[in-house]
Design a protein around this nucleic acid. Structure first.
Lengths: 343, 343
DNA sequence: TTGTAAGCGTTATCAT
DNA sequence: ATGATAACGCTTACAA
């Protein structure tokens, strides 16, 4: 709230013109005599006039801002996506509003409030119910959903999951790893659901029996560590141990790695472990983590571009973008370390 | 831009009252007869009325939003600070605007624009010139600067640097490491300058000769890796090698670690390495990284709290908060690994 | 308790 | 080329 800032009226008075003329000069729009323009420009500089974004939004009915909704900012994944989004929005001279829903209810209200402050909205994963997304669409609010199945008229940006999962699992089969356990919760996120589906299909297509149900874990290192420690210690005393763990993301995999170390299990010798995302740490741990690289920043920047197409270019038909991923072979699956990683 | 949304006029008409009454009901403020309240509330629900944040801002001269300015979103540090900030702002029901300056000029303009959209501003490090900060202060805009020396009337939040550096260096002296090299650029950030100053003082106070000038590096892993590789290879052929590297942050230290591995140098045997921040990776690499833990999230949340004090509680006198840090001993300084880390 | 009306600082439509 | 002036959707005295 810049108190006492100069308004368009101050400038008009100072330059001896009407506010309409000031507006024209300031926006570089409409016909203005060079002489007048100079005079007004000088007054603007002198008074340090800056148009109020609010008043402008109100009158012009646009905000020059866009927003992004995510569950929480912890961990590298969301940061990276927002990084890509912020950067592209910066280029488009759009302000960026962020909103973490923090798994609370009442978030719907905040999303609607956010919607009132922006020209377009990116919504990540399942942070917001479909009903709300649809409602936003009916308000003509441009929406792109990220890492989530298509919703009515909204654009979509996703990274390929199913086929990469198949490729990864086949690679592990190639290492002679027969008994694979999926670690993660397919019900928790669309991404994980697709990875699990690919995991299943890889088994089916190679004529193997249906694998065990997922070892449920949230997408954190702590979750993975706890889940894997429980499963492995059970296996150790009497039970059976899987040959490999296909973790739903890298953080789970890091937790699994730690659990294995703590229980004296050799990775990948006794237990292979893979992750997903290729967060920076994946190349730094020991053994280095085999994973699927997902273009996290591009997810964000693509979303920003799609939004810009709707807001500025006026596109109406929904677009659905699927970004490619790639299998990154490192040591934890049983391959030799093939990059110049630490240890 | 929710097109065609219900306005206060629609609700007023629907409920058969004036817009003033609708406003009163909607804000839960002022005297309204229960019967009227119920009637209006019903109309609000029915029409799905939501007040326009813009119009509200314009009329009430406040935004219910605050902003944070940072150089760039890459790496864990800024993400963590923003995490803390966003979370606390969420509690205070403030919207959050973010702005990365991306080391470009023209950022000043964007900061001023941002200032027009918020009730208060957090500015990290040297992203914005002192002159601008002062200017914002004169506009009565609440400002808190983070990881930066105090500026005129702005609040300050910093983490302790100088004394922790002394503690760290003394610890390394205790390991018998005499010849220490500081890696980082004291001119690049106030934090690094203070760490360097502490590094110098630790030498002075123990009667040692003044150490070599810093090995200049930006705050990235790539920067550290390059700088250290150059320095170490020179040392290897004829020159001399330091006994330890005191890196300005963890990412530099990770780069140093990698460079050492690549050149076949044992860490900490031939070369001790320490970092700063205690980012999550620090505990996962091999050897685990001795570092100074800095409360990154608290930096952000504290800034949000200070802002709230100014905005809501109307505080006027500047506050300066110094958050404590702690020395985290792991393996890379020569200590045994004392936590249950991987490897 | 409720309504009227004057802002808030712009944009945009008409006249002139 | 410029100036009045009506929106934009709300808050907030001030009246009634």
């Amino acid at each position: 709230v810049p108190k006492g800032s100069a308004t368009i009226y101050h400038v008009a008075r100072h330059a001896g013109v009407s506010i309409a003329t000031v507006s024209r000069v300031q926006r570089g729009d409409g016909p203005v005599a060079d002489k007048t323009r100079a005079k007004v420009a000088h007054s603007i500089k002198t008074l340090g006039y800056r148009p109020s974004p609010n008043a402008r939004s109100l009158a012009a009915n646009r905000h020059e801002a866009s927003g992004i909704v995510f569950p929480d900012l912890s961990g590298p994944y969301y940061s990276e996506v927002i990084y890509g989004f912020e950067r592209e929005a910066f280029e488009a001279r759009q302000s960026v509003l962020i909103l973490g829903t923090h798994a609370r209810d009442g978030a719907d209200d905040l999303v609607l409030d956010l919607a009132g402050r922006v020209d377009g909205l990116v919504i990540m994963g399942r942070t917001v119910p479909d009903r709300l997304v649809a409602q936003l669409g009916q308000m003509k609010m441009p929406v792109v959903v990220l890492a989530r199945p298509a919703v009515d008229g909204a654009d979509t940006v996703r990274a390929e999951n199913h086929d990469s999962a198949i490729e990864l699992v086949n690679h592990m089969f190639g290492h002679g790893l027969g008994d694979l356990l999926f670690v993660g919760d397919p019900d928790a996120s669309p991404d994980v659901a697709e990875r699990w589906a690919g995991f299943l299909d890889a088994h089916r297509r190679t004529g193997r029996p249906r694998p065990a149900s997922p070892l449920v874990s949230d997408l954190t290192e702590g979750g993975g560590r706890t889940a894997v420690r429980a499963r492995v210690s059970t296996g150790l005393k009497g039970g059976t141990l899987p040959a490999g763990l296909v973790c739903a993301n890298d953080e789970i995999a890091l937790g699994a790695l730690r659990a294995a170390h703590e229980l004296g299990i050799q990775v990948p010798g006794q237990l292979a472990i893979t992750g997903w995302d290729d967060i920076p740490v994946a190349a730094l741990v020991s053994p280095t983590l085999t994973t699927i690289r997902q273009p996290m920043r591009e997810l964000g920047s693509t979303a920003a571009v799609l939004l810009a197409e709707r807001i500025s270019a006026g596109r109406r038909e929904p677009r659905h973008v699927l970004l490619p991923t790639s299998l990154v072979l490192r040591a934890s699956c049983g391959c030799q370390a093939i990059e110049g990683e630490i240890s």
